[in-house]
């Protein structure tokens, strides 16, 4: 019973209420770095990792803030933790894979201002998830973000080979594709059997 619940939270965050396509979190990198499948995969992995750490940290901070009765500091402390986590990830990637560091470019520090991560922290607090629920939520959200990003990158790679009228080129086309993808993801609504 309990494992089923964790599985459901995971599935819900990954597919049914996909972070990007149905909650509109993390649209900037979704439109920005979805040009190539390889970059998209790695970006997804980086975001998923930051999400995981941020979720753990947010859980701890939330309980601490309740303890000292200072919930109004919630937003500020979350964003500081996320910013430092991103800094950490940046240093790790720079050290182990300079090529990837270059490919991600400005979008790496911008993970800080990725609403998906702050959104995850806020959602898990709002829904008062316990420790393990938070973890499955974070893992699901990370997976969902990566899936959306990789699918989008795949479609955009194909689109480069097709002839598109000039007017539609660029962000307009990407948004239209995202709309269709979002409709497709609505098909997961029955999943989980609630």
């Amino acid at each position: 019973m309990v494992t089923e619940q964790y599985w459901f939270i995971f599935l819900n965050a990954a597919l049914i209420n996909n972070f990007v396509l149905s909650s509109f979190l993390g649209i900037c990198p979704f439109l920005g770095v979805s040009g190539k499948v390889e970059t998209a995969t790695r970006m997804g992995a980086a975001v998923a990792f930051v999400m995981f750490i941020a979720s753990l940290a947010a859980y701890g901070i939330h309980n601490l803030l309740i303890l000292i009765d200072a919930q109004f500091l919630q937003l500020i402390s979350y964003i500081v933790v996320i910013a430092s986590t991103v800094q950490l990830v940046e240093m790790i990637i720079k050290k182990f894979s300079p090529a990837l560091f270059k490919a991600l470019g400005i979008f790496l520090p911008l993970i800080t201002t990725n609403c998906a991560i702050l959104g995850l922290a806020l959602f898990q607090t709002n829904r008062s998830y316990d420790f393990f629920q938070s973890i499955s939520f974070a893992l699901g959200a990370g997976l969902g973000f990566t899936i959306a990003l990789v699918i989008m990158a795949g479609i955009r790679e194909e689109l480069q080979l097709s002839q598109v009228p000039n007017v539609v080129k660029g962000a307009a086309l990407t948004l239209m594709v995202a709309g269709i993808l979002s409709m497709a993801f609505m098909g997961f609504a029955g999943l989980g059997g609630n």
């Binding site: 962000a171 239209m176 995202a178």
Partner: peptide, 19 residues
């Protein structure tokens, strides 16, 4: 009203401005 619509409407606006 659904999420897909948001993408479509914004896409349509961008199309208009491109045009």
């Amino acid at each position: 009203i659904l999420p897909g619509g948001a993408f479509f409407v914004l896409g349509a606006y961008l199309l208009f401005f491109n045009w």
